[in-house]
Design a protein around this nucleic acid. Sequence first.
RNA 1: GCUCCGUUCGUCUAGGGGUUAGGACGCCAGGUUUUCAUCCUGGUAGCAGGGGUUCAAAUCCCCUACGGAGUACCA
Length: 555
Amino acid sequence: MLEKKNGHLGQTLQLSIIIPNPYFSITSSLPEMPLLRFYYLCPINFRHTRMSNIRVRFAPSPTGPLHMGGVRTALYNYLFARHLGGKMILRIEDTDQTRFVEGAEDYIVRSFDWCGIKFDEGVHVGGDFGPYKQSERSDIYRKYIQILLDKGMAYYAFDTPEELDALRKKHEEEKTTFIYDSKSRMQLRNSLSLTKEESEELIQNGTAYVIRFKIPEDQYVFFNDMIRGDVKVHSSSLDDKVLFKSDGLPTYHLANIVDDHLMEISHVIRGEEWLPSAPLHILLYEAFGWEKPLFAHLPVILKPVGKGKLSKRDGDKLGFPVFPLAWTDPKSGETSTGYREEGYLPEAFINMLALLGWNPGTEQEIFSMEQLIESFDIHRVVKSGAKFNPDKAKWFNQQFIRLKSENELAIECSELLKAKGIDASLDYVETLVALIKERLVFIHDFWDQTFFFFEAPQEYDAKVAKKRWKENTSEHIAALAELLKDLSDWKAEPIKERMSAFIQEKELSMGQMMNAIRLALVGSSMGPDLALIAELIGKENCIARMNRAATHIKK
RNA sequence: GCUCCGUUCGUCUAGGGGUUAGGACGCCAGGUUUUCAUCCUGGUAGCAGGGGUUCAAAUCCCCUACGGAGUACCA
């Protein structure tokens, strides 16, 4: 790993488990102190258990519903923290007022509640490191940006957005990219290019300004990612990012670093989209002289088909949810469905998400949240993006439905029936659940699997009729119905005996006749044991259905 | 374009110098079931390409290709 970056060091370290300690600054060059080398060689678990306070955070922006990628990021944070006995924090990053969406924060909280991801601190539960909403922390950021200004590591920039846009456009036409950096900053309007007096005057006059970070020139920034290993970037490829906007609020970069430091975040586990700005964050920590957290950049979730990452719109197009819960956009009124609404069990959703980009190193696939916590190791998160597979998501749901007790399922199925205006006893529903449990992918499949217990078929599957209904089938069915009238003990066993005896006596084909009866009772060739169906729908219904079929199905 | 990250069956992945390259989803076939589903058994299919290093490379190195992310007074 290190060899790639640093030849001479690589030669001294021949072992492959080299994970640099992030608590030492290694910006300009890799240190060669023996102690550090020892630390590099320490097994990962040793380093984790030594860390007394594991604190991680999930820090969404309330700009809309959280999508499944966000839930997965939060989940990995949660599993990581719980596995190591640490704390999980929910912080709301709402520094961009223009993108604020009403109800988004509440949606985020409700989603985690449904998923079973619990927070130790956060906007909704409080804690000792609050406030947990960035819009309520602006004084804090102002204080810290001043420190950077005083140290000469940040500067005022007076360029208007229009000026910068024009510059970018001009460069684009020339097939180059405009970068606000050490090469261009002296040609722009800022406190570095202007005299002190000029800058002060502009500020006095109320000229709008932003505060930019002064990226140090010509140095390498190293950091270690728990998933990707060592990453090296040259500062010349970084630009002077805006830290403080003209509206008096910080950008993500500043707020994030300040909050993570103040909230004593030990591990930053976030999406891969942050990887390119990680070097900036490292530099920021160093500018403040703060201890850095350990980083882990998670791979993205990709679309099941086609190119690119899974986006909020894919769900509707491809027929699966991308959100945990249904969401209605407050402005457009547009509604998107959620996993919950589509019939997914939260356990299944979580299990599926956990295995999308992580594996336990064993062949176990079905995990409870407790088991996930027990097994989770962030070093087993894969590096590459994972295409989401809706079929596998369904399979997980099917597995978790089987894990549910018949009573639990019956309670939910009863609700389903009630919505259809059917009032069945819980006992009866439970009996049915026991019969068809293995056929359910979703709980709402219950109706498709049991409708014939509640209502007689009005139509008969033409294909099955063609195959099973012969010249005199109607006659036989009517005769059998007549025969069944005399059966006093209406239970599956005697029913079956009576049917078999009839078929044998008439020298009919068992398969043909049984399927014909099934067609009469169910309307198609599906369902559990025929005699059981007959028993459960009752004698009268059974006979009525047979007689109806005898007159309605024509060869 | 530039910067960074990646690449093992169609998909999710194991495997990290010597493996018949393993598992799961999907798909196909057979068995079980009087039907359908379940279940069981089997099958299908993969190391992106090219160079090195090595007795030996999916595994280590380099190049190419492809994919992804970023390139905002968004997060």
